[in-house]
Nucleic acid binder design. Structure first.
Lengths: 217, 217
DNA sequence: TAGATTGTTAATCGATTAACAATC
DNA sequence: TAGATTGTTAATCGATTAACAATC
């Protein structure tokens, strides 16, 4: 079975491969992809095995075909629809960041409890009053959500989203969201990351902490 | 030795404990802290053992004392000084987010290559031209950095920061930063997190993925 | 063929979990 | 004392790494 972390790495490989494709490379070896991604060659080979794509010992992996295989593996054919709750600074930054970045991942609506932040279109996404969360999320068929509300509203927001049919959540509020096992939650805790970096940064060099930890596992 | 992930959890416990302190609770049991943090009671006990604080079988852990122990363990006595490079939407959001949030973690300067984003004070932090990165970072004694520049500038930015004395980096650009082992790098990849959530969200319920993965490990 | 790379299995490593004596 | 919790060791689990035959 494919490892949990493999999924994250595949997302990374795909991005690197797309850049390679643009630069005209037809084939890559696992050790090349490893160097560019910061993973090991063995990880790369095992991950690619997981998506069912085979390389050639002579030429490595065909870039274009491999991208297609990863697409088929990672993406839902009809694409995934996401909503974002909390149109503060961070929420707006994420809306703008995702604008047209991944065609299979669309943010289809945003919500905020502050009337001054609703009724507008932000980076191509309409912002609604949070009261309409359930009706709009269900109407749009959203299965994903991004939570950028304050900490004390995050859990309640998650529960409403799950009730409305959301199955995957990326949470930026500085609390761990509690959810049933069938719901996938990625907690991205920026303060924690900075505190971890601060801790390890001041450890003596002896720390063999190569440990590149990527976000949300 | 204390586990890498323990550091992140300690940061989380501290935040929860601070809220408890405000609500007047004098003592907590490991299972209470576990429930509030989404960790297991065994993890909590082992993590707290790691900071050298002992609880009592009768009353559990003394909240105020425990916070102090975690502070002593995690924080540098003189505090850590961070700079932020890339004052776009995300960079500004992070600047405002951290404003006065953690007294031992100060963002002391920001940088951008765009003159329209420099020479200003954003959420209490002065934004400088990126040409001044080395001089300002060294003068301020920065040991931490937050990178919010576009992907193609991230690696070069990291190298300049390391050269200027930075030992810990939190990177939001969608590339993995390559750095010497003694530098601690936390890569927070928002796109990857959303793609992972999308993948697991559409797996059949059988997936026992409780897996709450927090960002940047 | 010779050499490098791929696919796959076995060994290692690290963190989590389970178990349990010690403590209040 | 009885009961629940803590501190600590042993067992489990999962992912990574190492090893190597198969392939081009």
């Amino acid at each position: 079975m494919i490892s949990t972390r493999s999924i994250g790495r595949l997302s990374l490989y795909r991005r690197i491969l797309s850049a390679l494709l643009g630069s005209g490379s037809g084939y890559v070896y696992s050790h090349q992809l490893a160097e560019m991604s910061g993973c090991t060659a063995a990880q790369v080979r095992r991950d690619l095995m997981g998506v069912g794509y085979s390389g050639s010992p002579a030429r490595g992996y065909a870039v274009a075909d491999l991208i297609e295989s990863i697409d088929n593996f990672l993406d839902s054919p009809e694409g995934s629809r996401a909503v974002l709750v909390g149109v503060g600074n961070l929420g707006r930054a994420i809306l703008c960041y995702f604008q047209g970045r991944r065609p299979k991942l669309n943010i289809v609506a945003a919500f905020d409890k502050n009337p001054q932040r609703t009724g507008r279109v932000i980076c191509g996404v309409r912002s609604h009053p949070v009261e309409e969360l359930e009706t709009v999320a269900e109407k749009e068929g959203a299965t994903l959500a991004i939570i950028t509300v304050p900490a004390d509203e995050a859990q309640r927001t998650a529960e409403r989203l799950i009730e409305a049919g959301v199955r995957g959540i990326v949470n930026f509020a500085p609390v761990r969201i509690q959810a049933p096992p069938r719901i996938h939650v990625e907690d991205i805790d920026i303060t924690m990351s900075l505190e971890k970096a601060a801790f390890f940064a001041r450890q003596p060099d002896a720390e063999t902490e190569t440990a590149q930890k990527e976000s949300a596992t």
